[in-house]
Each structure stands twice: as C-alpha cells, then as structure tokens.
Design a protein around this nucleic acid. Structure first.
Lengths: 160, 160
DNA sequence: AGTAATCCGATCTGCCCTATAGGAATAGCA
DNA sequence: TGCTATTCCTATAGGGCAGATCGGATTACT
C-alpha cells in the first residue's frame, strides 16, 4: 500500500481555513485589516506560504486586501456568508474530482458503469458538509445539525 | 489558485475499484480467477500499473491470487461483504487525513479550535458513503438509500 | 523620506503519482 | 521434461506538484 495523499485535506487548505477564521474573528471584533504576519504568528503558519494562499483567496474574491502601512486582509463578506466549500474551491479547485476530471463526463465500461453515481454521491456528501458550514459557524462552534450528528456518531472519532 | 489534487479520487483508487468490480462480476459468473491482463484489456487500464495495485489489494487481504497457468485474481470474500471503503483504505491508507495526520490528535489555536469537529464530520460523511456501498451493490446498481438520495439531489450532477 | 504592508515572479527541494521494464518464481499441461 | 501463462518482486524514470522561501517592486499612510 502506497502512502498516497488522495482524499486528504492538504496543508494549503488547512492553512487557508485557519487564516479565514482569523479574519472572521477580526471581523467580529471590528478591528482593522489583519496582516499576513499577524495571522502567521498567531496560527503558527509559514508566512511566505500563507501570503501565497491569501493571494489565492483574494483573487477568488473571498478576501480584500489593503496595501501599505497598517494594511492587511479582511473578509470580503460577512463570515456567515462564507462557507468552507468556498474556501476549498478557492485554493484547491473543484471538490472531489476523479483523476482530475469531473465525476460525470467520465465513461465507464460495465461492470463499472454505476460508478459515476457513487462518485457523485461522494462529492454531494462533501458538499453537504462543506457548503453548509460557514466561517461564522465554526468560529462560534455552532455547526449545522447534520454536521454535529456526523461528528458525534459513536465511532466518528475512532481510527479505522 | 494552484491546480491541487487534494480531496480527489486518484487514478490508483479508481483503477482499484474498477478492477474489484471486474472480480466481483467474475465471482457472480462463477468463472475462475481473472488475470491482470484480462482486467487491464477489458477496463482499459495500464497493465503493469494494475499489477502493482492488485498486489496492494492482495496484501490487504481483499483478493486472493493464483500463480501459473490459468491463474489470476479473485475476491477473497463475497462481493457483498467488501465495501468501497475497504478498497480505498487498501490502496490509499486512512480516509480524509489532514496534512497527513488524523483529524483528531491535531491541535488548533482559537479561533480555529472547532475545526477538528468539522474534519471529523467530513471523514464520517465519506465513510457513510464508502463504507456502506459494497462491490455487489455497485455491480447491481443497487446502492444504499442515502447514497441514492445524495446522487439524485437536484444539483448533485452540476458543476460548481 | 520612512516604514509597513501587499504583490509578484522566480526558485528550490523532495516526494510521490503514474507508469514501465526485466526478470524470478510458480503452476498446470502436453 | 519442456512449454506456456501467470503472479511476484525489484528497480527505474519522468513529471508534476506540494510546500516553502527569497528578493524585490509597488503601494499607502504618517
């Protein structure tokens, strides 16, 4: 068994979400823009790498930036209107592709011809969690019902 | 935005599942072991790569192999008792890790301290689909209710 | 001007995904 | 015994990308 990465959450994505949560906190506190330096030191992220990620987030329209003295980054929308799915797509592209392609528009020979349905279900299942969970929700620890249900299932925290 | 792969289904995994479905079909038809060559040509997979994948599956105890003339591979258990999750783990290792680590036993600073709950929910959500979908189910096109529900939602097949 | 930021492009290292090659071991059959 | 089909094992290779860093250009506020 190779030590593959697929279906994992990358450092890039993890960093992006944590950075966004920092900005969400700043939005609540009504303090000004937050510098990359401030985020990096408080969340223990590599600064230059974080800069690149924030650049992606800005280009995707999720954050705004202010240059110069006392500049920094801020959420482009209220934290309650930004989902984790938005963040994932901004830094990683489309969710749950198969071999770099969309689950549909793949052609399978029987006996694998029902596979696309499963792949679509996998993607839909991810969307249900990521698209309905907002930065504000994570910040406050108030997650959607079915997300709480998923995470509080008896063996959800067990390795397998 | 970098063209990242994370949260994708790798070629390796896709091939593994398709190979397993071929073996499942052979199990139903009660024909003998299937050679890598036969699987490769019928599912259009690179033969040598497939061999390596089948090796993983054998080492994980999901398939048995017979050497020599008229040899090949066969499922080690009834197709109804092998889930896609089993296959994923055999070729990819644990599902939905975060930066190569398990979702729990990661430590986050506030304001990101509720993140592990979300990561666990993501993993649980994947498990719900992959662990309850069996090879026999995919083969027959008879998928678990909630998988069907996920895949038949209005926008499940749409890009986003 | 000075200072603190973002912004941009280049670069680097190493890993790992995908894939192939070559051959050794094994098993059935004529 | 040899022939053939097959798994099995090891090595290799290109290519890409993740993760990360550097240096400097640009912008903005005081």
């Amino acid at each position: 068994m190779g030590k593959n990465r697929p279906m994992d959450i990358s450092a890039r994505t993890d960093y992006a979400v944590r950075a966004m949560l920092s900005l969400a906190a700043a939005q609540v506190d009504r303090t000004g823009p937050v510098s990359a330096e401030a985020i990096a030191s408080r969340q223990a992220l590599p600064k230059k790498f974080l800069e690149a990620i924030l650049s992606d987030l800005r280009r995707s329209g999720l954050v705004t930036s202010t240059r110069g003295n006392a500049g920094g980054y801020a959420l482009a929308r209220p934290a309650a209107q930004i989902s984790l799915g938005d963040v994932f797509r901004a830094v990683d592209g489309p969710l749950a592709e198969v071999r770099g392609l969309r689950p549909h528009d793949m052609t399978y020979q029987p006996p694998a011809d029902h596979l696309p349905t499963v792949w679509v279900a996998v993607r839909a299942s991810l969307r249900r969690v990521l698209d309905e969970t907002t930065l504000a929700g994570v910040l406050a620890g108030e997650l959607p019902e079915h997300v709480v249900a998923l995470s509080s299932a008896p063996d959800a925290w067990r390795n397998r």
